[in-house]
């Protein structure tokens, strides 16, 4: 029921966001076909379809993907400080994108290489941790993740170091700050595909995450193949994170903070938590992105806004909430 209310909020916000923008779109003439020249009506249509719609949908999807990935990671690693970039997905994607920009790939090529290297980074993390520890404790996995992230971050710095200061370097820098201003419809289709592929398995096994968020031994005592489930969950979360990062660049905070907000509203049960994370994450990023494109005539990089808005809001919630943090 609570979720239903929030879905209504999401729909309401999305429709509002569709009406808001820098270009004065006359919706009355767009619908009735009167009061403006056919040329203008055509422009209105193009703005809605090519500019606002992909942007709103992408914001919803990317916010949802990042926070759902964060929520399940926090569960399976039993650690509230974990975010979707834990296992190297973000730094892998960032390195892939920078490399593609350096070698003058097309925009689609940049997204593809970014997506692929995000997944590759997590695969490397998984391989290292399985080789190192037969017990496959989450500590080893987290440590391997930190190592792989560090290596990819350094490789990224190396790419930036060699990049042409007038052309490639500014492109890489802005890509890294996170920005939805240039998403196209095809990007939206790609993200929604990955979001669905990641979300459906997570949704189907959502109650197992509850078990996994208990201790490893307890989960195994309940007769669960913890390794298999963990692999599925990590694969889904990685798919969602890499898709999100490959399209819009690095957007921090969403995957870390939104799951906590969701837990404050809906409680810790993963039966609702997974879906609710998608909804609240979508609402959060949509709100932030709408501000980013409306407040000033320049675009404020999303990575900056999510943190500036997110941190105080999170502190406020923390002081209001009586839930325990242990």
């Amino acid at each position: 029921m609570k979720l239903f209310v929030w879905i209504c909020v999401l729909i309401l916000l999305s429709s509002t966001a569709l009406l808001v923008g820098k270009y004065p779109v006359n919706f009355i003439s767009l619908i009735s076909g009167n009061g403006a020249s056919p040329e203008d009506i055509n422009t209105f249509k193009m703005i809605i379809i090519n500019s606002r719609l992909p942007r709103i949908l992408s914001a919803l999807l990317i916010g949802g993907c990042l926070s759902a990935a964060g929520a399940v990671y926090q569960g399976i690693f039993r650690n509230p400080m974990v975010s979707p970039d834990m296992l190297g997905a973000s730094s892998g994607s960032a390195f892939g994108a920078a490399l593609a920009i350096l070698f003058r790939f097309s925009i689609k090529g940049v997204e593809a290489l970014s997506f692929a290297s995000g997944i590759a980074a997590v695969a490397i993390t998984w391989t290292i941790s399985s080789t190192v520890s037969k017990a496959r404790s989450s500590l080893v996995l987290i440590l391997s993740g930190i190592l792989v992230s560090t290596v990819f971050t350094s490789l990224l710095s190396l790419v930036k170091f060699t990049a042409d200061p007038y052309s490639k370097l500014p492109d890489i820098t802005f890509w890294l700050l996170g920005n939805l201003s240039a998403v196209s419809l095809s990007d939206t289709v790609f993200v929604s595909g990955c979001a669905l592929l990641g979300f459906i398995p997570l949704f189907l096994i959502r109650w197992k995450i509850n078990v996994l968020s208990l201790s490893e031994d307890e989960a195994r005592a309940l007769g669960m193949n913890t390794r298999a489930y963990r692999l599925i969950i990590i694969a889904c979360a990685t798919l969602m994170t890499s898709a999100a990062v490959s399209v819009c660049g690095l957007i921090g905070w969403v995957g870390l903070v939104v799951p906590h907000i969701v837990r404050m509203i809906f409680g810790p049960d993963y039966k609702t938590l997974v879906t609710a994370s998608i909804v609240i994450g979508g609402i959060y990023l949509l709100t932030v992105d709408t501000l980013a494109r409306y407040v000033l005539s320049i675009e404020i990089p999303l990575g900056i806004l999510t943190a500036i808005i997110g941190a105080p809001f999170f502190i406020y919630l923390m002081t209001k909430s009586e839930r325990g943090w242990s």
């Binding site: 923008g21 820098k22 270009y23 500019s51 500014p170 820098t173 802005f174 920005n179 201003s181 320049i298």
Partner: peptide, 24 residues
């Protein structure tokens, strides 16, 4: 056309804007 307050400009250049803004 990009009349933007000095404070909002990145000194490094390459200030991002939206397609809609360019249309306006």
């Amino acid at each position: 056309v990009a009349q933007i307050k000095e404070n909002d400009i990145s000194g490094y250049g390459n200030t991002p804007v939206s397609m809609e803004q360019v249309l306006v």
